[in-house]
C-alpha cells in the first residue's frame, strides 16, 4: 500500500512545489498575467492610504511609509458630499434600469410573440438602432434638454437611456424560445396579454433580466460622458463624475474607482453652448 498521507516532514513548499518544468512555466506566466490585472487595484488602494507627497514620490512602495488611511477615508466620507454622489449614482442607475425593463419587456414580447403588420420592419429598426452610439445623439439631446430647461436634473441624466434597444433585442431573442403552446393555453385559460408577461414570461426570463441588469447597472454607474455633459451642480453629480473634482491625487484614489481623465476642452465648449450661441456650439 502506498502511503498517501503527507509525510510528517512536509513543509508548505511541498504543497506548492510544481510537479514539472512545464507546470512551473505555466504557473509563472499565469502569475505575471494575474499581477498585471491586479496591480492597478493594489496601487489604487495603496495610494488611498498615503499622504499626498508620498503619492507623488518617485520612490514607490506598496506599503505606505506614512499611514494616512483613516484621515483620507474620513475626509472623503464625512467632509465631502461623497455619500450624495453615491446616492445620485444609485438613483440614476436604478431609475434607468427600471424604466429600461418596463419599456423593453413589453416591446420584446410584442416583437417576439405577437403577429402584427410591420413587426419585422419594427424589429429591423431596433437592430439598426443598436449601431448608433450615444455620441451621435448627444448634441441634439443636449440642445433639446437646454430648450425645455431640464439640464442638470435626474431626468436629463436618465432620459437618453430609458429605452435600451440592446435590451429589446436580448429579450426578444430570449422570449422567442418560450413555447407558443403555453401562451395559447394561457389565452384559452383567460390570461390577458399583460398577465401572460407577468405570470409566465417574466419568471422564465429571470436569467436574461439578471444578465441585462448587471450590464446596464455597471455601464451607467461607470458612465462619465453623459453626466459630464448635462450635470453642472454638485448636488446632482454622480460618483464617477465626482472623481474629477478630487485634488490632490490621493483623495481622488480614495474615492475609487479611478476613471480615465475626462476631455475637459470638450466639456467646456459644450457647457458654453446655449440657444444664444448656436454657431459656436456647432463648430464642435
Amino acid at each position: 500500500m502506498a502511503d498517501i498521507s503527507p509525510s510528517p516532514t512536509a513543509t508548505w513548499f511541498d504543497w506548492v512545489k510544481p510537479k514539472s518544468t512545464g507546470r512551473l512555466i505555466t504557473t509563472v506566466l499565469l502569475f505575471i498575467g494575474a499581477w498585471v490585472m491586479v496591480f492597478p487595484f493594489i496601487w489604487m488602494i495603496s495610494s488611498s492610504m498615503k499622504p499626498t507627497d508620498e503619492v507623488y514620490d518617485a520612490d514607490f512602495s506598496i506599503i505606505p511609509k506614512t499611514f494616512k488611511g483613516f484621515e483620507n477615508y474620513y475626509g472623503v466620507i464625512f467632509e465631502q458630499p461623497y455619500m450624495v454622489f453615491l446616492m445620485n449614482s444609485m438613483i440614476v442607475c436604478v431609475g434607468i434600469l427600471v424604466i429600461q425593463l418596463l419599456t423593453a419587456i413589453p416591446a420584446s414580447y410584442a416583437l417576439a410573440k405577437l403577429k402584427f403588420r410591420g413587426s419585422s420592419i419594427l424589429f429591423g429598426t431596433v437592430i439598426a438602432a443598436i449601431t448608433i452610439p450615444i455620441n451621435v445623439t448627444s448634441i441634439p439631446l443636449y440642445i433639446g434638454l437646454v430648450k425645455v430647461g431640464l439640464l442638470d436634473t435626474y431626468f436629463a441624466m436618465m432620459f437618453p437611456f430609458i429605452v435600451s434597444v440592446f435590451a429589446i433585442f436580448l429579450f426578444r431573442q430570449f422570449f422567442r424560445g418560450f413555447p407558443d403552446s403555453i401562451i395559447q393555453a394561457a389565452r384559452v385559460d383567460g390570461f390577458s396579454e399583460i398577465e401572460i408577461i407577468l405570470r409566465l414570461i417574466l419568471p422564465s426570463a429571470v436569467p436574461a433580466i439578471a444578465a441585462f441588469s448587471v450590464f446596464s447597472f455597471v455601464a451607467h454607474w461607470n458612465d462619465l460622458y453623459w453626466p459630464l455633459i448635462v450635470v453642472q451642480s454638485q448636488d446632482k453629480m454622480t460618483a464617477t463624475l465626482s472623481m474629477m473634482q478630487y485634488h490632490p491625487l490621493s483623495t481622488r484614489t480614495t474615492g475609487a474607482p479611478m476613471p480615465p481623465p475626462p476631455s475637459s476642452p470638450r466639456r467646456w465648449s459644450l457647457h458654453s453652448f446655449s440657444p444664444a450661441g448656436c454657431s459656436s456650439g456647432a463648430s464642435l
Binding site: P179, S181, I182, Q184, A185, A186, V188, R199, L200, S204
Partner: peptide
Amino acid sequence: MVFQDYALYP
C-alpha cells in the same frame, strides 16, 4: 384545450 406538449406553466 389540451395541447400536444401539454403546455403546463413551467
